[in-house]
């Protein structure tokens, strides 16, 4: 009966104002129906202007030259890969504690996007590494831990979809996501713990960021744009998944009715 909760959320009558309000897939669909065009429009606007700013207007770096422009994609992707995984972990906690069907669906749809973002982070990084470090890949601590993060995303994608019972898949994926959280601090602090090739953090520091505003501002603008796009894609995918489950529930109901009808006919004839 895994399709039962899609009809309406398992709501507690006494608590309509809590977070559980958003657990109702119907309300989720109505709300996101209004938000999504705005979100997608804002993402397009910010990202479009960010790309122009970063690729055409921002000055080349005095050391890295034009290759610094790769950073305008690489850094937001890296932040999104980690932030997205944190989001996945939060969704997993919600799914394990409150058995929240919408959290399951969102986690399921978030994981492929997160895997794609992490892959882009790795690819742009290695494209940048070739002219700057002289190699596409080194087994540096940061690179290795991000590669592990990528495998965790892929593992989640594969595990969630490997079960016939989607609820069990969601449960297993949530546990895996929580196990993988140990990797997040390793990714974050790998550049401080091991003194290898990847440079330490230059934006998120306690003192001022170690880069000029001409580069910093377009970077932050691009990050905002990519984050908006990330959220828009995940929301759209989750909406599609909710609707898909509804369609399946309707089809199952129709099939059951079709199944029942001939049986009664046969019964009548006999």
């Amino acid at each position: 009966m895994e399709n039962a909760p899609t009809q309406d959320a398992p709501r507690q009558p006494g608590a309509p104002t809590s977070l559980h309000r958003f657990a109702n897939p119907g309300r989720f669909l109505r709300l996101t129906d209004n938000w999504l065009p705005w979100l997608a429009g804002a993402a397009l606007l910010v990202l479009g202007s960010g790309v122009v700013w970063a690729l055409l207007l921002a000055p080349p770096d005095w050391q890295q030259g034009e290759t610094v422009r790769i950073m305008f994609v690489h850094v937001p992707m890296a932040w999104l890969a980690m932030g997205g995984y944190l989001g996945l972990a939060i969704l997993s906690v919600m799914s394990l504690i409150w058995r929240h069907p919408l959290a399951d669906l969102t986690a399921r749809e978030l994981a492929p996007v997160g895997a794609a973002v992490t892959a882009l982070c790795l690819i742009t990084g290695s494209l940048w590494g070739r002219p700057m470090w002289g190699t596409y890949w080194v087994w540096d601590a940061r690179l290795t831990s991000v590669l592990v993060l990528f495998f965790l995303w892929l593992g989640h994608v594969a595990l969630v979809r490997a079960f016939d019972d989607p609820e069990r898949g969601a449960r297993m994926g949530a546990i895996l996501a929580l196990v993988g959280v140990v990797n997040l601090p390793i990714v974050k602090f790998s550049v401080d713990w091991w003194n290898t090739l990847h440079q330490p953090a230059s934006v998120t520091r306690l003192d001022a960021p170690a880069m000029h505003v001409d580069i910093l501002y377009p970077l932050l603008w691009c990050t905002l744009g990519f984050s908006l796009a990330f959220a828009a894609v995940v929301l759209a995918a989750t909406r599609a998944a909710v609707m898909e489950r509804r369609v399946r529930a309707l089809q199952m109901a129709a099939a059951r009715r079709a199944d029942a009808a001939p049986a009664t006919l046969r019964g009548a004839r006999a």
């Binding site: 590669l147 495998f151 593992g155 594969a158 595990l159 490997a162 016939d164 297993m172 196990v179």
Partner: peptide
């Protein structure tokens, strides 16, 4: 335990365990 009952569990298991 995670891949118990999964389709292609034998392929999934190394994917989950080896990175760790």
């Amino acid at each position: 335990a995670l891949t118990l009952g999964a389709r292609r569990g034998g392929v999934l298991l190394p994917l989950l365990v080896l990175p760790l």
